[in-house]
Amino acid sequence: MDIQSLYQQAIKFAAVKHVEKNQLVPGTNLPYVVHLSNVAMEILVAAHYSSTFNLAYAIQLALLHDTLEDTSTTFEEVSAAFGVEVAQGVLALTKNDALSKAEQMLDSLKRIKELPTEVWAVKLADRITNLQVPPSYWDDAKKSGYRQEAMIILHELNGGNAYLEKRLNEKIMDYKQYITA
């Protein structure tokens, strides 16, 4: 299947799932699909700068990366619609709610690192996209913690995608402007 068809199939699936929860981009009135398409855009550009990159795999992951974590979607549904490999990638990008908040990200990063670097790239792209203007209700401690998490992601996924690593590093530096203390 061509990239455009894969993109359409995945974004429609994800949009339906996120709309069921009336999910918005945090701190905005924008539908969550805007976040997903921004992550996919980062992946599309990164693919252009990456010599060996499975864009078909990565674009599906980008658009589906939050379906297991944020909606009622099951692993089986993703697997049936997009294949086991995509479902496993989405699962690795999903935080395990059975763990403490402090353990969730490191556990996810560990699982991501066991999979192809396209999964790494989606995690990098996700955090790049999330390092926009923070929601107005976030205090400096929340913003600082989020920035620190981004630095951990960058460190742990070093070697996954040079283009996205450079982008994330720039976003981390720029994000300091939102922290007043």
Rank of each mutant, 00 (worst) to 15 (best):
M151H: 13
I152K: 12
I153N: 05
L115D: 14
R147G: 04
L61R: 06
K142G: 03
L115I: 07
S79A: 15
L63D: 01
S100H: 08
Q148N: 13
P134E: 00
S108C: 03
S72A: 15
R111N: 12
A102W: 04
M105F: 10
K123G: 09
A58S: 07
T117G: 11
V84T: 14
Y146D: 07
G83H: 05
N96K: 05
A62D: 01
P116V: 11
I128P: 07
D140K: 01
L91D: 13
N96C: 03
E118L: 02
I59V: 12
A150I: 15
T117L: 10
R127P: 00
A62M: 00
K101G: 00
A102F: 02
I128V: 11
H65M: 09
S72H: 09
V84C: 04
R127C: 12
V78N: 10
S108D: 05
T129S: 07
S72N: 15
A102D: 10
S144M: 08
L68D: 04
T73G: 09
M105Y: 03
A98C: 04
A102V: 06
W138I: 01
Y146T: 05
L63Q: 01
S72D: 15
A125C: 12
K142I: 05
F75G: 07
E118W: 12
G83S: 13
